[in-house]
Every structure is written in C-alpha cells, then in structure tokens.
Amino acid sequence: MRRPILVNSCSLDSFEGLHHAIQGSHVEVMQLGRGKFRGSLSHVGIGDFSLSIGSFSVGVRTQRVPTDDKLVVGMLLNAEDRVTHWSFDMRPADVLIMPPSTEHDGIFRGASAYAAIRLDLAEVTSLFKGEPRLSDPAAWLTKNHYRADTSISVAATRRLPLIISRLAQHQGALSDAAADFWKRSIVDAVTGTIMHALPPDSRGPLPSATQLVGKVDDYLETTGLRPVHISEICAHLNVTRRTLHRAFFDVLGLGPITFLRHKRLCAIHSVLRESNPGSVTVSEVAIQHGFIELGRFSHYYHSLFEEHPSETLGRRGAQANRESKPSGRALRFASL
C-alpha cells in the first residue's frame, strides 16, 4: 500500500494558527507575551504518522486536549526564554513524552521553536524492536522528560528542519521505501536524546561480532538498492544499537551508520552510472537514498569515489554521444 509523503508549510500571523500545532491534535493556545505574533508551521504526513515543526515570536501557553489517543514525542528546538512543560524545565534538544489521552500544559515565555511527532502507540513495537526498553508500549504511558546531552543537541535541533525542507522539494517523487526510511530518520532524530540518556543494556553475552555483521550483510542483500535505516536493522535482528556498534567496530573498524552510508553511496553510484543525465538529477537520486544536504552528500561521495556525482552521471551521457558518432575510419569508408 502506497504511503506518499505530504508536506505542508504556512506562515502564521496570530496565535490561533497554533491550534493545530501538532498535526492531528487540537491544542488550546493563549498568547502571553506582548507584541505582534509572527510564526510558521510545517507538517509532514506519512500515513498516520506525522512530524510538526512550529516557531513563534512571542510567549504562549499551549494546552493539549486529552481526547487525543495518539502518542506525542516533542523536542524543543530553541527558546529565547524559559520553557516549562508540566513541571519540567526544557532546554534545546530536550525531549518530552506525552502519552495518549493525556492533558498537556506548556509555557513558552518568549520566542521559541519546537518539533513533535505523533504516532499510534502500537507502532513503537516495530519502530524500536531491538531496544527492549522502548519497544514496549507500556514504556510510553508515563509523562517523561529526557535531558539532551550537549554533544548532540546542536545536530539534533538542526536536522529536523532540514528534513522538512528537503522532503518538501521531493515529496511527490519519493518511493515507498524512501518514505519508510525518512519516517525512521525523523523518529531517530526526535528520539536520539532518549537513546543517549538510557544506561547501557546488560541483557547477557553479546552474539559473535562476525556473525552479527554477516547477518547484516545477508539482510542488506535482500533489500536491493533501497535505503535502509539502522533502526530497521536493529528491529530485524532484534539487537540494540550499542550491540551493533560494538560488533561493527570489532569487525570493520567503523560504525554501522558509516557502513550504511557507504552502502547508500555505492547504490547511488550504481544508479548514476546507469542513468542518462536527461532522465534524472543528482538531487533526486540523493533524496531517494536518504541524503538531506547536497553539499555534505557531495563531500561524502567525492571522499569515497574521488569524483563528483555529476561526473558519474555525465559519464553515461558522454559515452552515449561517443557511440552515436561514427568513427573517423567509418566516415572515410562512407565517403568512398
């Protein structure tokens, strides 16, 4: 069943526009700060799953209506003044868990920006399979707050707006496989703070590193050229990310995320090598394979292959031109 990605963005000139601050939820909003309200709101929808990002220029109070039966996981992206949710003081990249059918009260004392994902509680079983402390729906039934580590906070708050910006440009052209990859990437970006905050898992002896890497290879063999997110592999093999990281460093000397990036780069190289410049663009192929920033993608690509993506794509066109032109020898015979 096809699940297209739908992206909508709009500018806001009043606090009333934040009533749908989280797609699918109704939020009561009251302006607290003095001044002309200015803001923006973006929604990404993939089936019943959604990502919402909003920003506003003055302080507001938000209250979520408890009739919403979906799980909401929110992240503060930035704030000029104090932000509190329930009794939790929030800092940028902090994550808040809002269980289904739960009232929520948030106070933003100044200009702020946030992100929130909304999903069915039953989905956490498949999205976090391999992470036993997160794959149990019961783990998400309590209001909770996770403090962001300073080492990941900047990257976390920057990644989500970039994802929305890139998906807005290519939403109609993305395959089902790409849509699932980006859904997992969004969940990963929002919940990375939670993963980082959890203590090491000590469920028993680790599986053989070589055997585990081999199982990853076997699984990737079945997926073809489509992008595969690390959470998908953890779910398929029922292992935690920490286990996977240790295994890959032991066997290959690099982490699984770097390994998967190289696999995606190789897949892109194969697609570009076999494509005509007039039929595809580098940007289209990059987003289908899970790359947001073209500049960073080009850097990764050139570092691995010592050529630019456009050079790989242009080679097929140059070859076609050469093959369409008769050689000098053929021209001489033709003139006789």
Rank of each mutant, 00 (worst) to 15 (best):
A148W: 03
S42I: 08
T84V: 13
A155N: 07
V83C: 03
R184Y: 11
V154P: 08
S55T: 14
Q319N: 12
V27S: 03
A138Q: 09
A178D: 00
I107V: 15
D94G: 08
G214S: 06
H308E: 14
R2K: 13
L12A: 06
R64I: 14
K183H: 08
T84C: 11
V60W: 01
R203L: 11
V73A: 00
L134R: 05
S324D: 13
L198P: 11
H43E: 07
H229G: 05
S126Y: 00
L134Y: 05
I22W: 07
G35K: 03
L198M: 08
A189D: 07
L127M: 10
L212C: 05
P99D: 03
G295H: 14
H145W: 06
G45Y: 09
S279T: 15
H299F: 11
A116V: 08
P92V: 05
I194Q: 05
I164M: 00
D105L: 11
H289I: 02
A156S: 08
S55V: 12
M75H: 04
T258N: 11
E323M: 10
L77T: 08
K215H: 14
P205C: 02
I186D: 09
E232S: 05
I152P: 09
V72F: 06
H302G: 12
T193N: 05
D176Q: 00
E284Q: 10
E274G: 10
P92F: 04
H19Q: 15
L265F: 01
T150Y: 08
Q171H: 07
K36S: 15
S275Y: 01
L6V: 15
D48V: 04
A235E: 00
H196M: 12
R261E: 13
R332Q: 12
S335M: 12
V282Q: 00
T150P: 14
I163Y: 01
C10E: 15
A189Q: 01
S9V: 11
N8C: 12
I194A: 02
A122Q: 09
H43T: 06
L162Q: 11
Q171A: 12
G253V: 06
V280E: 07
D69T: 04
R118T: 09
A334I: 04
I233N: 03
K70W: 10
N8P: 09
Q169Y: 04
L294T: 12
D217A: 07
I164F: 02
V213Q: 04
I163S: 02
E232F: 02
L237S: 02
T142G: 11
V29M: 02
L18N: 04
H269Y: 13
H289F: 04
S11A: 13
E311W: 01
H262G: 14
G24Y: 00
L141N: 12
